[in-house]
Computed example of a mutant assay.
Amino acid sequence: MNPILISDPTLRDGSHAIRHQLTIQQIDLYSKMVEDASVPILEVGHGNGLGASSLQLGESLVSDIDMLATCRTNLRNTKLGIHVIPGFATINRDLKSAIDIGVNVVRVASHCTEADITKRHIEYCRNRELDVYGVLMMSHMAPASVLVEEAMKMESYGAQGIIIMDSAGSYLPVNVKEKIKALVNSVAVPIGFHAHNNLGMAIANSLAAIEEGATMLDATMRGFGAGAGNAQLEILVAVLQQLGYKTGIDLYKLLDASDVAEKEFLKVPYVNSSSIVSGMAGVFSGFSKPVERIAKQYNLDPKDIYFELGRRKVVAGQEDLILEVAVSLSQLR
């Protein structure tokens, strides 16, 4: 069996769950614990990635630079990773500063049909001799053939692996198998999968991905993340160990760390009616907080907002359309 490379975005995707208000003390504590548990990669930053802290997307309590510098001090064997969406993160301001701090892994992301925008960022990071991966977000919105085309673009730019994200938590294992199989058979670089748990399928979908040849998986402590959360790291590592896969992670230390993290700062996500509808509608999991807030403000059922957002094919970065949809639904009522 191939070893499985685990990347932990608890200090990135997890920040969606608490409106990007992770404190420097929490970041310091968590990075020390994952280093001790030998987690291969720790991804750090605003929920939408490097340079994304803003009024529209939510302002981080701690700056990118301070988050990364704190983790860099604590990480020796665990690699320090960042999520980069061109447009939010600039090369000269954001990316250069992060690399100068000592980032090891850069994951350059785009909407699943817009890989062209990642070219400059991927090439820059490869020239700086970093580990560079391409990420296709909201991958449920494109058929396997289109994902293959976009992945091949990222590979041609120099990406050393391709990760597809189930950003809306809408996949079932059969969907994962189809798309991962197509990618594994079409590109030469490793393939990874990033699960969300809106339909309660995050672990099952992660296993479906490796059954079809994926060798990289994302997971967060206690599932801490946007919407109903991500694949739960401790469960995923335990199940992989039971199945005979190697991750290099010390499960006992990971379990101890999860108990401490939950006590100290993790808000444990769960599957509720809104997250189920979000998954069914194919709406970005990070929209859960603003949808709930705006639905309450306009006395609307958040389920109606989700389905309308899904009908309009709204994606991350279009948070302003949540309000537009709410106003429209309110007027119809």
Rank of each mutant, 00 (worst) to 15 (best):
His111Arg: 11
His111Thr: 02
Glu114Ser: 15
Ala115Tyr: 03
Asp116Glu: 14
Asp116Pro: 00
Ile117Leu: 06
Ile117Thr: 08
Thr118Asn: 13
Lys119Phe: 02
Lys119Gly: 00
His121Cys: 08
His121Ala: 13
Glu123Leu: 13
Tyr124Gln: 02
Tyr124Cys: 00
Tyr124Phe: 14
Arg128Asp: 00
Glu129Tyr: 10
Leu130His: 07
Val132Asn: 07
Val132Gly: 08
Val132Met: 12
Val132Ala: 08
Val132Lys: 06
Gly134Trp: 05
Val135Arg: 02
Leu136Glu: 06
Leu136Ser: 09
Leu136Asp: 04
Met138Asp: 06
Ser139Val: 07
His140Thr: 06
Met141Gly: 00
Ala142Gly: 01
Ala142Cys: 13
Ala144Gln: 05
Ala144Lys: 15
Ala144Asn: 05
Ala144Leu: 10
Ser145Ile: 13
Val146Gly: 00
Leu147Arg: 08
Glu149Val: 03
Glu150Phe: 08
Ala151Trp: 09
Ala151Lys: 09
Ala151Leu: 11
Lys153Asn: 04
Lys153Leu: 10
Lys153Cys: 01
Met154His: 07
Met154Trp: 05
Met154Thr: 01
Glu155Ile: 03
Ser156Phe: 12
Tyr157Arg: 06
Tyr157Ala: 02
Tyr157Cys: 02
Gln160Phe: 10
Gly161Arg: 03
Ile163Tyr: 12
Ile163Leu: 15
Ile163Lys: 04
Ile164Lys: 03
Asp166Trp: 12
Ser167Gln: 09
Ser167His: 07
Ala168Arg: 04
Ala168Ser: 15
Ala168Met: 04
Ala168Gly: 11
Gly169Met: 03
Gly169Tyr: 05
Ser170Glu: 01
Tyr171Arg: 07
Tyr171Trp: 15
Tyr171Phe: 15
Tyr171Glu: 05
Pro173Arg: 12
Pro173His: 10
Val174Gln: 13
Val176Arg: 07
Lys177Trp: 02
Lys177Asn: 06
Lys177Pro: 00
Lys177Tyr: 12
Lys177Gly: 14
Glu178Trp: 10
Lys179Met: 14
Lys179Trp: 11
Lys181Asn: 13
Lys181Cys: 11
Asn185Tyr: 08
Asn185Lys: 15
Asn185Trp: 08
Ser186Trp: 14
Val187Arg: 07
Val187Asn: 03
Ala188Glu: 12
Ala188Ser: 15
Ala188Lys: 15
Val189Leu: 11
Val189Tyr: 07
Pro190Lys: 13
Pro190Arg: 13
Ile191His: 06
Gly192His: 10
Gly192Ala: 13
Gly192Ser: 09
Gly192Pro: 02
Phe193Pro: 00
Phe193Glu: 04
His194Gly: 06
His194Phe: 13
Ala195Ile: 02
His196Trp: 04
Asn197Ser: 13
Asn198Ser: 12
Asn198Met: 09
Asn198Gln: 06
Gly200Leu: 09
Gly200Ser: 12
